[in-house]
Design a protein around this nucleic acid. Structure first.
Length: 226
DNA sequence: AGCTGATCATTG
DNA sequence: CAATGATCAGCT
């Protein structure tokens, strides 16, 4: 069956298990581990990701470590349309707004986070009921030299702006492959940052997101779609 | 139709 | 509040 809930021993086992989900509907997967399927994701935006974590045996919780700590692999679900195109940007992690002086890409949280990722595409157009959405072929990725270079460039640009106190001037269009956008419960949420004069102030928490053109490239490269 | 600011649930 | 999981939804 699916070996639901058991932690995979190694990378090969994890990949095999994930690829065995290809062609299955979210309803079938949910039923196999006795999980109820919500009518929509308006109030459970992370439901698909959590479902995949459970069926693949990822460690639960919101701890700041990979989903599969012993394998050093992060799990990411990727919503795509029927043509295999990403429907959303991919959230990576919260962006630190303080303590960045002297920060290096090589030792950044985001680099560590995406050093090795198990991507699980899900045909997830909004017109398809949640239970009927189909899982695609999963693949494991690590950034190529070129990809890492692009990520590092964007990270440096965004981080420089934050360090200079310009975080509030950062918009979604900054960066070629990486974006800095709000990541909060609502627009009232606040976290500390520094302004252009080096004085602390409270601002909206931000997160790093991979643009759809970037994840599209991964799909093309690993799945030969298109 | 794509973008980007806004938002929801849960856990530690 | 921060970090986990992301998608929603209005505007251009």
């Amino acid at each position: 069956m699916l070996n639901s809930g058991k932690s995979p021993k190694n990378e090969a086992e994890l990949l095999t298990r994930a690829q065995n989900l290809a062609g299955m509907s979210l309803g079938e997967i949910a039923a196999s581990i006795n999980v109820q399927v919500p009518k929509d994701l308006k109030r459970e935006k992370g439901w698909i990701g959590l479902l995949l974590e459970q069926v693949l045996g990822a460690s639960a919780g919101s701890r700041p470590e990979p989903d599969f700590p012993h394998l050093g692999i992060e799990l990411k679900s990727l919503p795509i349309n029927y043509q295999g195109k990403p429907l959303e940007t991919t959230f990576v992690c919260v962006a630190p707004l303080t303590g960045l002086v002297g920060a290096q890409w090589q030792t950044s949280h985001i680099r560590n986070k995406i050093s090795r990722v198990l991507w699980v595409p899900v045909i997830s157009e909004r017109t398809i009921p949640i239970a009927e959405r189909i899982v695609g072929t999963a693949f494991i990725w690590s950034p190529s030299q070129e990809e890492e270079h692009l990520l590092a460039l964007d990270w440096q640009e965004l981080t420089d702006m934050i360090v200079l106190g310009d975080v509030e001037n950062i918009h979604g269009k900054h960066g070629q492959v990486l974006q800095l956008r709000p990541k909060a419960a609502n627009s009232q949420a606040k976290t500390q940052a520094f302004n252009r004069h080096g004085q602390p102030f409270m601002t909206l928490p931000r997160g790093f997101y991979l643009k759809t053109s970037f994840t599209q490239g991964l799909l093309n490269k690993y799945l030969r779609i298109d």
